[in-house]
Computed example of a mutant assay.
Amino acid sequence: MQTIRTLSWGVRQSFRAYVEGAGGKTQTSEGAQTAADGGFVFAAGPDSTLALDEAGRLTGRGTFTGIVHFEAHGGMLKVWMVDPILEITDAGAVLTVADHPTRTYRLEAARLDLGAMATAPGELALPAALLMFGSQWLGGNYPAGTALDPVRLGVG
């Protein structure tokens, strides 16, 4: 059993470029960090049970900590990505986020393709697609099913 230590995700490169191009800003806090590729890195929370089993399958529930805040157009565009959780079930894998630092509500942002998981030393990469609530989270600019940046998991 190998423990998952980090989750890295850039949401969607074109979304990040749009925020920047609109004169906006992206801020990280509470442990989230900006990665060299422009994505964001979240450390596993103390209650995270996400792991890679001996057969190479992801199991458990990954809780990750940190906040990313996108803001543009003088505050008219505000998107929060707070404390991602990766849920592995019999139906597949879903990434949820809290949509505000109050952490009152969570939404299903993306479905991850476990069957297309790629492995490299110390890392797993899962293709991600936007879900309906994820589309609303990003302001309705991308329809459900839109390909997102892959979710990368650091294996420790």
Rank of each mutant, 00 (worst) to 15 (best):
A129Q: 15
T59S: 09
T119F: 05
V41H: 06
Y18N: 10
P46K: 15
L148P: 02
D47M: 10
D149H: 01
F40A: 09
F64D: 01
M132Q: 14
G60Q: 03
Q27N: 10
K25G: 13
D113E: 13
V41L: 14
G62P: 02
Q2M: 06
A116N: 09
F70V: 14
A118L: 12
I4W: 01
V11S: 02
T28M: 03
A128I: 03
D53F: 06
D99T: 11
A91S: 15
P121R: 11
A22S: 15
T63Q: 12
R61Q: 11
E123T: 15
G45K: 03
T89C: 06
G45V: 04
T26D: 06
E20Q: 13
P143S: 04
W9E: 00
A129P: 04
A144C: 12
G154C: 10
V94R: 15
I67L: 14
N141Q: 14
P46G: 12
H73W: 14
V94H: 07
Y18D: 07
L112I: 07
F70G: 04
R152I: 02
M81Q: 02
F42H: 00
M76R: 13
T119I: 13
G122M: 03
G10A: 09
G156M: 08
A120T: 07
A98P: 07
S135G: 14
T104E: 14
H73F: 14
Q13R: 14
P101K: 13
E71Y: 05
R152K: 12
D53A: 06
A125K: 00
T6Q: 04
D149Y: 00
E20H: 09
E87T: 14
G139N: 03
L77M: 15
R111S: 15
